[in-house]
């Protein structure tokens, strides 16, 4: 149990640092940045305490916000993501998702892709809506959501594939 907790804590710190020190500065084509820190929310064990999970997601977003001077946009998006995650677990994994005991590296690729894409797009949409905070710029919001989203999804899949093979 303590090993799992330590693992989660380490993942939290590493993802925040990697996000703010490396991935916030990629600026591919001028403005496209991947937000890979949400891997923490995506891969959080499904059988844990949900209230704690929502709170941890808030802390995660808050730290990224403090580092990137963005008010509370990452915190808001992360909290929402953590709260709606069970819906997407059911939606993407269907019958495999039985009694909250899912292992992410044992699921098949297509359902994993659906799950990742849905969560990433939701997160990015909330984040950019709050960051731009202007309904007349909806096109800019959608454009940023789409491009950054694709980048994030690809990177998240690569990272999960790399690290899951190492463990076996």
């Amino acid at each position: 149990m303590t090993k799992a907790t330590l693992n989660i804590a380490a993942r939290f710190v590493v993802l925040v640092l990697v996000q703010v020190l490396i991935f916030n500065h990629i600026n591919f084509m001028g403005y496209i940045n991947p937000y890979i820190y949400i891997l923490f929310i995506i891969l959080f064990p499904a059988n844990n305490n949900r209230t704690l999970f929502v709170f941890l997601a808030f802390l995660l977003g808050f730290f990224v916000d403090v580092f990137s001077d963005s008010g509370g946009v990452h915190a808001a998006a992360s909290v929402t993501l953590a709260y709606v995650r069970p819906v997407f677990l059911k939606f993407s994994f269907g019958t495999v998702y039985d009694y909250q005991s899912i292992k992410f590296n044992q699921t098949d690729f297509s359902s994993k892709l659906t799950y990742f894409s849905a969560l990433v797009i939701i997160h990015h949409f909330i984040m950019y809506s709050l960051e731009i905070f202007n309904i007349s710029k909806i096109l800019l919001i959608l454009q940023k959501t789409l491009f950054s989203g694709i980048f994030t999804i690809i990177l998240c899949l690569i990272i999960t594939i790399l690290f899951s093979q190492k463990r076996k």
Binding site: R50, T51, V54, F55, F58, G61, F62, D65, V66, D69, S70, G71, G72, V73, A75, A76, V79, T80, A82, Y83, L130, F133
Partner: peptide, 29 residues
């Protein structure tokens, strides 16, 4: 869980709105 979510979401909205007004982004910077 829902109440914690509402509370934290409200808090982050508060931070966001604060950061949109000049000289008020005191908490998160």
């Amino acid at each position: 869980t829902f109440l914690v979510f509402l509370l934290l979401f409200g808090l982050s909205l508060f931070f966001t709105i604060q950061s949109h007004s000049y000289h008020k982004s005191k908490f998160v910077n």
